[in-house]
């Protein structure tokens, strides 16, 4: 599949992974086989890394999310990589970035309660030898995630019929 078409396919799936291969093929002007093949190649190459559903858990339970900044002293040339591999193994860690600026890792952590997260940060993250210090920020309200507005459903403000 040519590059431009592949990028379009990825943009469509990024916005709505529920689109069927049939619909995607029609929308892209390609055949169903082409689309299905391309998707499986992209999955194998780990360009498509998974399919997620955006859920506003706040409406369902009282789970807590925190963003934790980690400052570390990495050992050796691939120190960040090694540390990242270790940190991302924790099931509580849902997102992990290496950052530029005042700290090194940004870790998004989920838990049932503030206490659970606090214990995880102090007990598991802060106790890693290379970790110098941690700063934990608890999230209060999620307004937008991955480009999707979590607050209000978009209303079509256009008039019903216009020239």
């Amino acid at each position: 599949m040519e590059r431009e078409l592949r990028d379009q396919l990825l943009r469509l799936l990024e916005n709505n992974s529920k689109l069927s291969s049939q619909d995607l093929a029609v929308m892209l002007g390609a055949t169903v086989e082409e689309v299905a093949n391309e998707i499986s190649v992209l999955e194998q190459e780990h360009v498509i890394c998974g399919y997620h559903t955006l859920i506003d858990w706040n409406k369902i339970n009282d789970d807590v999310t925190a963003l934790v900044e980690l400052r570390v002293t990495p050992q050796g040339g691939d120190g960040y990589q090694k540390l990242a591999e270790r940190i991302k193994e924790f099931p509580q860690v849902v997102t992990l970035y290496l950052m530029s600026g005042a700290y090194d890792f940004l870790v998004m952590v989920k838990g049932k309660t503030l206490k659970e997260i606090s214990l995880f940060v102090s007990g598991k993250l802060a106790s890693i030898h290379e970790v110098q210090n941690t700063t934990t920020h608890f999230t209060l309200t999620k307004y937008k995630e991955f480009g999707v507005d979590f607050e209000v459903e978009k209303v079509d403000e256009r008039m019903v019929v216009t020239p």
Binding site: D156, R158, M159, V160, V161, T162, P163
Partner: peptide, 24 residues
């Protein structure tokens, strides 16, 4: 004619419109 049809369509609750001449 569009204006006339607008007046009709605007009165129907739950309408799905494909009648708009402007970008979404």
């Amino acid at each position: 004619g569009i204006r006339k049809f607008f007046d009709v369509a605007n009165e129907v609750p739950g309408v799905i419109s494909l009648g708009v001449g402007e970008p979404d």
